[in-house]
């Protein structure tokens, strides 16, 4: 039986690498939002509930809106 925090941290690593590997900035912003939300779940499991809900509001909410707004003001295309 895999511990649940190890499973979630593996998903965090996969989504973090995926956010950097996707060749589309809007897709990278959405995968980065999933990364932030999975990281917030990992912190809630580790007992840091205050850090977890701040990350859910600020990391997964506000920074995704910042990224999407920046992509809409610039361009979606990227070379890497």
């Amino acid at each position: 039986m895999i511990p649940i925090d190890l499973a979630i941290l593996t998903l965090v690593t996969i989504s973090g690498i995926g956010a950097l590997a996707i060749k589309d900035l809007l897709g990278a912003a959405i995968v980065f939002s999933a990364y932030s939300f999975l990281m917030c779940l990992a912190w809630a499991i580790m007992g840091a509930v205050d850090v977890a809900f701040t990350e859910a509001a600020v990391g997964a909410g506000v920074s995704t809106i910042f990224c999407v707004a920046a992509v809409f003001h610039t361009t979606r295309r990227t070379k890497d």
Binding site: S63, C67, T74, T78
Partner: peptide, 27 residues
């Protein structure tokens, strides 16, 4: 990375990794 937004996302991943370290040492 060559793209500026990708660099900023990488900086945020760096910061959340350090926060993960601090939450782990408190557990």
């Amino acid at each position: 990375k060559n793209n500026l937004v990708k660099k900023i996302i990488g900086m945020n991943i760096f910061q959340t990794a350090i926060i993960l370290f601090y939450v782990s040492i408190a557990y």
